[in-house]
Design a binder for these strands. Structure first.
Lengths: 342, 342
DNA sequence: AGCCGTCCCGAAAACGTTTTTGGAAGGAGG
DNA sequence: CCTCCTTCCAAAAACGTTTTCGGGACGGCT
């Protein structure tokens, strides 16, 4: 089952077998066939470990996906789809994914990610779901291993990131609301320390300004992307006497919470207050009223991240570009307008 | 950076360093400390490939997660949570996950999973999302590598599987419906060739019989777990003159479709027809009417699968038990009754 | 004939560990 | 003084590849 055995049985040297399996062309068609045939008979499979040892690369991409599973709302569907995209993206290029399972229930990570990555000699790392200022992130970025962030703005020598066009999406959302006649438009932003949170907030403000609308400070409240924070935020948005007639929530989950809070306050959505979300998670179309939202191409993000990472691995000299994927407005029922009839 | 360097700098032999790092006790406290210290200074990390080569095991668990990403409804949230559970389960035990990315957009898998598994010398394999009669599955089961199926009934020498108590769950569902006064209870089953599909159908029939209720053939129609099939199934259920007053759908997604179809037929849910689902996906509580359903402990399934697999790896002599996790009835609005006031 | 180029292929070193085998040092017991 | 355990450690083989270096065979030139 080792290359040695194949060599013996086909009457050639070890190096020749190796050459055959690596597709070198300096081996005659006849020997190639003979080697391939005996390999097939012996059911020979090359050992990755040995190859990794000598080539100093593993054809493996490390994935650190921070999913605190104790978080009640962890089921954030975003990363699942990104992962699917990632998988398909790198699969075609001959890489497999190494999912680091080094996270403890209490959030401690006993064996730092970077250490595991080096241990396995992964050729690249994908970072998702962790806090931008996690010290471990910085260590990884500073390492010589190529890194791609997903919704995590890191840059460096061999590192870059991919995310949706968050500011564009936010602008799209408020523009839509405005086109429906709203002028008092509030926002429930994501955590401003995260890239998507900050950018969507930026986009909101930019578009409000561009439209000549007033965006007083009390019309922007910060959530954490999850449902409850949306509920809470909406309550505080509703308290002033001049309440907004529309709100742009920086995530669908928060939009949901917002709608719930509005309904609890006896307001009708969208008649009394319009809501638009961000993400287009599966929920969005099934919920009632169905959610108008900004759709992110989640699979596409994974795909892009994978391909870009491999690109960076195989061309270490070119500095990797920051990738921004387009988003799309999906009009449903939660803000009335032309879809109100649905 | 190799063990050799550490040995040189701390004035001991290579084997001693190895012993220190593997926690053998036949090394004096003094040398141990010295070695550890220089290792720290050199920032030494042992190379997994070399270790794998000689120990013939990798501390890696292969995961084959078949996710046709071209399927419009692929976003099935089930596996995401299972994966999270799996990750945490095996992480504590010192294993990492190797996610095979060898699936092509058109469904071809160019390099069979088993081959990759052997290549990387994974210590065990987790199978999820694939068809029970996929020939590749059989090959994997027949291999000497320990295997755990998730919702995939495979058994063999070193193989077993874990799933929810599907028949119990189904019985729970129809019992609940019956307790609400329903007697004409239909079901939209999952694909009967899959374990969960078959078992939930079995449970439905068993409970109907136990309750002395009539379950004519036209009251059971087979779907594929996804939304559209539920819609379609509901339409055919509604056509006979003696239409059911309640239906048990073998998945939440199908329940959703069913509700949609019922509403399209101008029936009110739950007043005119009650629906209960299975899974308790995130959608279930947000949809309107919110879904009464049977909750699966998805994270728990992953956790159990991981632990059981590792158990089997480390105790190859004991034959692994089939694991069945309890489910739970979650009463919401979609079938009236005591939650109708919600 | 002699020289050179091309085409195939083999020998051997290297990658970084673990494990087996055995041996030196030192103390205890006779 | 001799023998016999312990305790600690070193040497070396083994794991299964890739890659470098070089060499034989063969044909075509001059």
């Amino acid at each position: 089952m080792s290359i040695r055995e194949v060599a013996r049985q086909s009457g050639v040297s070890v190096s020749t077998v190796s050459r055959v399996f690596n597709g070198y062309d300096d081996v005659s068609a006849a020997t190639r066939e003979r080697v391939l045939e005996t390999a097939r008979q012996l059911d020979y499979v090359p050992t990755a470990a040995a190859r990794t040892l000598v080539k100093r690369r593993s054809q493996l991409l490390g994935v650190v996906l921070f999913t605190g599973y104790w978080h009640p709302d962890i089921h954030h569907p975003f990363f699942q789809e990104v992962l699917v995209g990632l998988k398909h993206g790198v699969g075609e290029l001959g890489y497999d994914l190494l999912l680091f399972a080094t996270e403890q229930p209490d959030g401690r990570r006993p064996d730092p990610y970077l250490r595991r990555a080096r241990q396995h000699r992964v050729d690249g790392i994908v970072l998702m779901g962790l806090e931008p200022r996690d010290p471990e992130v910085q260590k990884i970025v500073d390492s010589p291993i190529p890194v791609m962030g997903v919704d995590l703005d890191i840059t460096g020598n061999r590192t870059s990131f991919v995310s949706s066009d968050n500011v564009g999406g936010a602008r799209l959302a408020v523009r839509h609301l405005h086109s429906l006649g709203h002028t008092r438009i509030a926002t429930i932003s994501g955590p401003l320390r995260t890239k998507p949170g900050a950018d969507r907030s930026l986009g909101y403000r930019a578009e409000m300004r561009a439209l000549g609308l007033d965006a007083p400070a009390e019309h922007e409240v910060e959530g954490d992307f999850y449902t409850e924070s949306g509920e809470e935020a909406m309550r505080s948005l509703l308290s002033p006497r001049e309440r907004p007639t529309a709100v742009f929530a920086a995530s669908d989950l928060m939009a949901l919470g917002a709608i719930k809070a509005a309904q609890a306050a006896k307001l009708r959505v969208p008649e009394d207050i319009a809501v638009v979300g961000f993400d287009d998670i599966q929920l969005a179309e099934h919920v009632s009223p169905s959610l108008t939202t900004i759709r992110q191409d989640k699979v596409g993000i994974g795909l892009a991240a994978g391909k870009a990472l491999v690109e960076q691995i195989e061309n270490p000299n070119v500095t990797p570009p920051v990738l921004t994927l387009p988003v799309e407005l999906v009009v449903r029922a939660s803000c009335g307008g032309r879809a109100a009839a649905d």
